[in-house]
Amino acid sequence: MTVEIEIRNLFKKYPNGTEALKGVSLDIGRGQFFTLLGPNGAGKSTLVKVMTTLISKDSGSFSISGMNPESNPAKIQHFIGVASQENEIDPTEKVENLLVFQGRLFGLSKAEATKRANELIELFQLSSERNKKASALSGGNKRRLHCALALVHRPQILFLDEPTVGMDPLARANFWDIITMLNRSQGVTVFLTTQYLDEADKHASEMALIVGGEIHFAGSIASFKKMVNPDGDLSLDDSYLKYIKSLNNNSISNNNEE
């Protein structure tokens, strides 16, 4: 396996004292569909922000495609596409203009950027919204546009942080069709964080579980299920719940013993 994303002993503490990452280490292979699971506040979004250079780490190291993103944040942006939890769109601009502008930022000529914008408008079924201002879009269409913007420059690695929040079932299905197509036919590496474990179970093959800023498990989804429930055949959702509940129970019993 060629390692695409390598993370070693990553620490991050926020100014308010919250230790979001406590020595996280992970290897994610090229072309993998990887999902990072964990409860709210576990450190998932912080890890994505560090790796995409939105925030800086305290210590440790990480590389993407063999490059150190922190030493050249501009260069790494050509390789990665990011769709985070919150919409990142200019509400005053029209759908097509936003996509063309995004393409221009990544060095496409105006003609290339327009062509790419048209492809993505078709792909994300936004044709009827093309000339609408982003502020006039429905919540689901805003999410579609937000995700389309992450794909304009054809990134090799996609960081998807809760990407389908706010999408209706049809939009979600359409979105996953696009992402799985990119993953399977174009070899795009996907790094997904989600609370919709059925989506992770259906599309991802590898996973890591992060709790309280520490990695509790890293491996295939199948092996996680087997670890949690050696005899049965639980879904990822049930396996995850069982594991987290057991952690909470252990924590309670440890506190009682103290």
Binding site: L54, Q77, E88, I89, P91, L105, G107
Partner: peptide
Amino acid sequence: ADMQSGYFRRLYLSPAPR
């Protein structure tokens, strides 16, 4: 306006110098 809409993050993640 860019910060309030979250668009600043999108621009921040472009190859343009920050």
